[in-house]
Amino acid sequence: MDRILIFLLDSSNAILVLMLVSLGLAVIFGLMNVINMAHGEFLVLGAYGVLTLQWAGLPFAACLVIAPMLVALIGLAAEELLIRRTYERLLDTILATWGLSLVLRQGLVLIYGPGSHAVAAPDMGSVPVFGEIYPVYRLVVMALSAAAIAFTFWVFFRTALGLQARAVIANRNMAACLGINTRMLDRLTFAFGAGLAGLAGAVMSPLISVDPNAGLGWLVPGFLSILVAGLGSLSGPIVGAAGVGAVDSLAAAISSPVWAQLTVFVAAIIVIRFFPQGLMALKRREA
């Protein structure tokens, strides 16, 4: 019983962070039709951001706030310098952001070295949860992820900015005809999506080994999550990440993490292949 509870808590932790990653990917794809292959690196940048700010002597909480913002700024620069030049060319957005991911990854190697770093976990101790002792920081990670997800939904469905974003997603030209600055929304969206990845990396930084190649391990599950559930809505990545994350956790509990990941990937590929709603959504956008 106690093991099951811990397992559930750990799984929720992983799932919530994966949701954050997928949500960023989905927001960028939905609005801009850009497949962001550098999303994993944005996450890693968030973790390195915390590492660096911690070295500079900032308290952990401040790092958690500033690092995602820095990543959002990097996203903004990437959008302006690179990504906006490949709009309307879906496959080229893959290549351009893929190139960006290579550069970012190697840039991190140059600055921080190829090895992995550990971010000092904030000492928050443990608390009893339903009779089990559980690290407080992991609960904080869950709360922050859930809050960021809720915030994203709030922005999209309750603010003027979100309304404009939804209009652009539905019909970019008509939105512009109503005076909506679609360029500005593209910039904001990309920065926001990058910031979400940065936040995921920042909150996870004390729990993972921070190394330049960590991004890919998040990118692929993130993509599979949004494809599995289907594109075209914000709840898609949430549902997809829940599915992918749950299968991953379950399989890992039964076998090893490596086999779990293989199971998830293969299962996701099969789902993507045979469940057309995701495919249909992409085809509609490609047309």
Partner: peptide, 15 residues
């Protein structure tokens, strides 16, 4: 905008 409500369609233009 078929997915947006009538009011949202109007609000977009009134921003």
């Amino acid at each position: 905008f078929g997915q947006l409500t009538v009011e949202e369609n109007l609000r977009l233009a009134a921003l």
